[in-house]
Structures are given as structure tokens and as C-alpha cells.
Simulated scan of single mutants.
Amino acid sequence: MTGKTSRQQSRNAIMMFLGMMLVALNLRPALTSVGPVLKTIGDSLSLSSVGQGVLTTLPVLLLGLAAPIAPRAARKLGMERAVLAALIILGVALAARPYLGVSGLFLGTAVAGGCIGVMSVLLPGIVKRDFPESASLMTGIYTAALCTGAAVAAGATEPLRLAFGNAWHPALAFWAIPVVIAAVVWWLQLDGKQVPKAPRAPKKSLFKDTLAWQIAFYMGLQSSLAYTIFGWLPTILQDRGIDAVNAGLALSVSILMQVPSAIAAPWIASHMRDQRAMVVLVMLAILIGIGGSIYAPIEGVWLWVVLLGLGQGGAFSIALTLLAIRARDAETAARLSGMAQSVGYTMAALGPLFVGILHEKFDSWNVAGGFLGLIAIGAIIAGLGAGRRRYVLDQ
């Protein structure tokens, strides 16, 4: 009996791990698949730079606005079933959005962002609950899977458009397929088990905690840079003379470079006194990468996108790590995750929108580059506060 129970536990752990990795792979393609074909979509639907900026902003905004829904859904359905519901809705939104006109494209993109926002809040709690002895390792692997999914979508969407006879509609709808696969595997791993309900949040609010706000601002500002790059880097590079396929490939390479730094940065930081030095290092890499991509000779673009990716992978994984290590217990970590992602992603949504507005007004990327530099400096300031060895809700 003991052997059978042990085998069942091992099977459950393997299925949960596989399900989580498949879910993580689907947390960014809805966003990164748009950038490589953004100019084509804009020409097809007569969208201005501002309209294109809104399209890249919507899913990020919904990441933040939908985050508070996650704990309510978890209390009602259980965390696993809430993730399954979000996957199903995400798949429908991705399949339908290219074929419903301008309003359908915007609505589907917004719904996709909301679903991703719910799952992004719930998955870290599942990691801490089901893999308590290896939460840091699982977070790194989960982040690497997320970055891989983002990179594949960024690099493959434009070739898919060409393969589908220059049609961007099926190229975007294609990304519903891996969502369906993830939903099936996630459903199978539930296996009829009773799903524990999330506890009700205590009355003490994180919104009155200075450290929590510093973490939220760091999460938001580094995310603002990330989603601006997801949405606009291919267009920037095309405007600088690179063809559409190579512009999408550059974004894909940049995102792929996030994988090693996403795993390495938290591990290296764990051997330091705190995370402040690592915050400065990864944000400087982002700052140099963005500057090189916009202002430096275009022949060196591959160096800049590699540096940009290394910085962004480290910045994002450090942000996720802070959600865990700045809380004294798993319940507080889950609450901090919800608060920081709600505030942070809502703030992050302004980045792609303002970049679109600045490009429209000045018909150049130079001013937009300066704006992104200011965001990076703000992230360093917030990260220096968040990186100190302290805990939220400590008096």
C-alpha cells in the first residue's frame, strides 16, 4: 500500500510539473505574437501608431486589472480549477480574436491578457504549496518556460504569416493550439482530487506597507520595459531597415536570452548580502540594450538584443523572487504576488501606449528611447528599496 501511495504521489507530482510547464509556456505568446506582425495588422486594419500602441497595451493593462480576480476565483473554484477555467477562456479568445474585426481583435486581446493575469497570480502559490522544498528551483524553471514560450511566439509568428499566404489572421490564431494542449494536460492532472480552497485574506493591508509598494513599483517598471519591447522592438528594427522576418527573429533571440539569466540571476543573488547589486546589474544591461537597439549603428543590433534579453530575464526573475523572499509565509507571499502584479502590470500598461504616442507625435524613436531610459532609472531606484533584506508587514 505504501509503495502504491508513493507511486501515486510521484505520478501526481510529475503531472503537476508537466501541467505547470505547459501553462507557463502559454503565458506570453498572446502578447509576443502581436509585435512581429504589428505593422501588417496596422496596414490591414488602418490602425495608427496610437491604435497599435493601444493594442500592445491592452493585454498588459488587463494583467493588472484581472489580478484581484485570482484570489476570488481560487476561493470559489480552487486554484487548479481556476487555472483551468482561465486556460479555456484564453484558448477561445486567441482563436477568435483575429477573425472578429477591429473591435474583436481588441476585445480578444484584452480577454487574453485578463486570463494570463489570473494564472500569473495563482501559479506562484501552487508552486509554494506543492513544491515547498524546491520553490526557488521551480520558480526558475517556470520562468524559463515562460520565456521560451514568449520567444517561440515572437520568432515563429511572421514565418507562420508567410506560410499561410501572407495572412496574419491564422498566424495569430495558431497560438490557441498550445493553449488547448495545456488545458487538456492540466485537466488530466486534476484526476478528480479535492482541490484545497485558498484561505481568506486577513484584514491587514499590504497597501499600507512601504516595502510592498517598492516591490510593486519595481515589478511594474521592469514589466513596462518588457512589454514595450515585446510590442515595439520589431517595428523599431523594421523602421531602421531590418526586414520583418529578421526583426521578429531579433525579438525571439532577445527573449531566448532571458532563459539562462532568469535562472542564474536569483541563484547568484542568493549568494549576496541582498538583491540590490543584482537589480542594478540587470537594469543597466536593459538600459544599454535598449539604447543600442535605438541609437547605435544597426549592424550591431544582435549584440544589443542579446544584452537586452539577458537583462530582462534577470530583472523579471528577480521580481518574482522578491515576491517570495520578502514575505515570511506562503499566505503573505500569495497576497504580495496579487498586490504587486495588480499594481505593477496596470502601471506597466502605460509604457507601450506612451511609446506609441511619442512615436506618432515626433515621427521618430529617439524621444521614445529617452522615455524608456527614464523608466529604467525609475526601476533601479525602486529596486534598491525592494532589494534590501526586509519583510513586508514587519513593524
Score class of each variant (00 low, 15 high):
Gly3Asp: 13
Lys4Gln: 15
Asn12Leu: 12
Ile14Glu: 04
Met20Phe: 11
Asn26Gln: 10
Gly35Thr: 10
Val37Pro: 08
Thr40Ala: 15
Asp43Ala: 14
Ser46Asn: 11
Gly51Trp: 12
Leu55Glu: 06
Thr56Met: 05
Ala70Ile: 00
Glu80Thr: 06
Ala82Arg: 07
Val83Pro: 05
Ala86Ile: 02
Ala93Asn: 03
Ala96Pro: 00
Arg97His: 04
Pro98Asp: 05
Pro98Trp: 05
Val102Ser: 03
Ser103His: 03
Gly108Trp: 01
Ala110Leu: 03
Ala112Met: 05
Gly113Glu: 00
Leu122Thr: 12
Leu123Asp: 11
Met138Pro: 08
Ala144Glu: 11
Ala144Pro: 05
Ala144Asp: 02
Leu146Met: 15
Leu162Met: 08
Gly165Gln: 02
Ala167Gly: 02
His169Thr: 12
Ala171His: 03
Phe174Thr: 13
Ala176Val: 03
Pro178Glu: 13
Pro178Trp: 12
Val180Gly: 10
Trp186Gly: 04
Val195Thr: 10
Ala198Trp: 01
Arg200Gly: 10
Lys204Phe: 03
Ser205Asp: 14
Ala216Leu: 12
Met219Trp: 00
Gly220Val: 09
Gly220Asp: 10
Leu225Lys: 05
Phe230Ile: 04
Leu233Ile: 14
Thr235Tyr: 10
Arg240Asn: 14
Gly241Lys: 13
Ile242Pro: 11
Ile242Ala: 10
Ala247Lys: 07
Ala247Val: 09
Ser261Met: 11
Ile263Glu: 01
His271Tyr: 15
His271Val: 00
Arg273Gly: 03
Gln275Ile: 09
Leu281Ala: 15
Leu287Glu: 06
Gly291Met: 06
Gly292Ser: 02
Tyr295Pro: 01
Glu299Phe: 08
Leu303Ala: 13
Val306Gln: 01
Gly313Cys: 04
Leu320Pro: 04
Leu323Trp: 00
Arg326Tyr: 07
Ala327Ser: 15
Arg328Ile: 06
Thr332Val: 13
Leu336Arg: 03
Leu336Gln: 09
Ala348Asn: 08
Gly351Arg: 09
Ile357Gln: 05
Leu358Trp: 05
His359Trp: 03
Asp363His: 14
Asp363Ser: 15
Ser364Met: 13
Ala368Tyr: 01
Gly370Ile: 09
Phe371Asn: 11
Phe371Cys: 08
Phe371Glu: 08
Ile377Trp: 07
Gly378Lys: 11
Arg389Trp: 12
